[in-house]
Amino acid sequence: MRAILIDDEISNLENLRTLLEKHCPQVTIIAVAQNVSDAVDAIEKYLPDLVFLDIQMGEQTGFEVLKQLPKRNFEVVFVTAYDQYGIQAVKFAALDYLLKPIDIEELVDAVHKAKHKLAAQMQTSQLDFLLQQLKKPEANVSKIALQMQSEIRYVTLSEIIRCEADNTYTHFFLEDNEKILVSKSLKEYADLLRPKGFLRTHQSHLVNPKYVKSWLKEDGGILLLLSGEKIPISKPNKHSVKQALQQL
């Protein structure tokens, strides 16, 4: 895979180069760039397979690079030291990211996934989705990208009835009775969706309050959904769930 590294700090570029050369021999670094315009030029010139893109670059962001490219025929791995908002958007788009200092396993894993996606040729729509989401204020984000085995599904949040953990996987139960299995833990989605009003009733359950029918007192508390499903409420979550439901 031919890769371009984009970071405003030389030491970061050096570091990433060192790590890639050592742990990801399948990656060839064809160029590096330290600012947005150099990056756009380099990508247009070298047409890389993979771009390691620093989100925070001085006073600009790596997203600028993506916006300025009409065609994005490459995989992107975002790299950031600390960037709450940017990372959130990246997560909603189910894109890959690395945190500095770089964890070698995460790096290897990201390169691996990128290779897989390149083979499946399904990356570009995610970047479009990301750029769309970035245009809106954070509160208006209403869709989430779900990475499935062989496709990306963009799901409206109001469509999601509930999520259920299955080890490191998560089942999404949608309004039209569709069930989606995503290879990410429920915890990650709980972090993303709780700010959107989803209720963590149980360590294995995340529920969209829109689909709650009633609170059953049997077995110390159970949520009855409109679909007729019964979702357990664990003791530590009882209070917060009750409060959240009362506010609706």
């Binding site: 700090e9 030491s11 970061n12 050096e14 570091n15 060192t18 790590l19 050592k22 925070q56 030291a81 600390y82 960037d83 945190l99 500095k100 200092p101 770089i102």
Partner: peptide
């Protein structure tokens, strides 16, 4: 925090070099 993590990243670079 941006500085902190970048600084750590810088140290990582020294190690890797």
């Amino acid at each position: 925090p941006h500085f902190l993590f970048n600084a750590l990243s810088g140290i990582q670079n020294l190690m890797n070099k």
